[in-house]
C-alpha cells in the first residue's frame, strides 16, 4: 500500500449534490468515482415537477 496521496475522490450518492461535487472536482483535475445505488443519477430533484423560487423545471 503506497503512502502517497491519491488524486481521486469518491462521491457517494448521485443526486444534485453528488453531481455538483463530482463536476467541480473533475473540472479541477481530480478523478471522480460517482457511486449511485439506483440505475440512474438525478436523485430526488429529478422527481420534482418544478423547483422554487424560479418555477423552472427540475431537468
Amino acid at each position: 500500500m503506497s503512502q502517497e496521496n491519491v488524486g481521486a475522490v469518491m462521491v457517494v450518492g448521485g443526486g444534485i449534490a453528488g453531481i455538483q461535487s463530482a463536476l467541480d472536482l473533475a473540472d479541477a483535475g481530480y478523478y471522480v468515482y460517482l457511486v449511485e445505488k439506483t440505475s440512474g443519477i438525478g436523485g430526488a430533484m429529478s422527481q420534482l415537477d418544478k423547483t422554487f423560487p424560479t418555477n423552472d423545471c427540475a431537468m
Partner: peptide, 18 residues
C-alpha cells in the same frame, strides 16, 4: 447530468453501494 455522464474524469458506478 449529461456533463457527468460524458466527463472523461468522472466514472459513473450505478447500481453500486459502498
Amino acid at each position: 447530468m449529461v456533463e457527468c455522464g460524458r466527463h472523461l474524469n468522472i466514472e459513473l458506478l450505478t447500481l453500486a453501494e459502498v
